[in-house]
Simulated assay, not measured.
Amino acid sequence: MKAYLANGLFSIGDRYVNQYLAAEIRKAVEGIDLYVPQENDAINDKSAYADSLAIAEADLQSLQASDVLIAVIDGGEIDSGVAAEIGVFSTLNRPIIALFSDVRQQGRDNHKKIEALIADGVENQFIYRNLFVIGLVKRTGVIVSTVEEVVEEMKKLV
């Protein structure tokens, strides 16, 4: 099985999440061929040079060859590169597993939070995700909230 791991890769936090998630997937899914863009030094060694076309071609080639996309959709907004990768991959009609671990998902059954939102729109205790991107994920995949759930979804696909 070939898979593509999409997430930001410029902050230390993103790089650590990518390393951890990739290690957990590789440990759980024997023989997986997992493409992690930050591991591709030909385009992502930032002390070297790769132009936009080289980056696009390398990532597109890996997306098109993949059986599944694992996309981290955390952050203030979905990373623009991740959103683009979801868009491209969704046209292939293959499964997408999105990891959305934001703790503001908790308490959706808390009536005080909902009442506060109704009373004052800026008292939003929840987080917004772009609904077009979410819809593309849901067409062929799932949204989970833990690394363990990502691994379980991957195991279902093998």
Rank of each mutant, 00 (worst) to 15 (best):
L5D: 06
L5Y: 01
A6N: 09
F10M: 11
F10C: 04
D14K: 08
R15Q: 15
Y20H: 03
A22H: 02
E24K: 06
E24S: 04
E24M: 07
I25P: 00
K27N: 11
E30R: 10
D33W: 03
D33G: 09
L34R: 03
L34E: 05
V36F: 07
E39R: 13
N44Q: 13
N44F: 15
D45M: 13
K46F: 12
S52H: 13
L53E: 15
L53N: 15
E57R: 14
A58Q: 10
A58D: 14
D59E: 14
D59N: 15
L60C: 05
Q61S: 10
A65L: 07
S66A: 12
D67A: 07
L69G: 11
G75K: 06
G75W: 01
I78M: 11
D79W: 00
V82M: 02
A83W: 01
A83L: 06
I86K: 00
I86L: 03
V88Q: 02
T91G: 04
N93P: 02
N93S: 14
P95C: 04
I96P: 01
I96H: 03
A98Q: 05
A98V: 01
F100A: 06
V103S: 12
Q105S: 09
N110Q: 13
H111F: 02
K112Q: 15
I114A: 02
L117I: 02
L117W: 04
L117A: 09
L117Q: 09
D120V: 03
D120S: 03
D120C: 08
V122Q: 15
N124A: 05
F126A: 08
F126T: 13
Y128E: 12
R129A: 03
R129L: 11
V133Q: 00
V133C: 00
G135C: 07
V137D: 05
R139N: 08
T140N: 11
E148H: 05
E148P: 00
E148V: 05
E148Q: 08
V150E: 00
V150C: 09
V151T: 09
V158P: 02
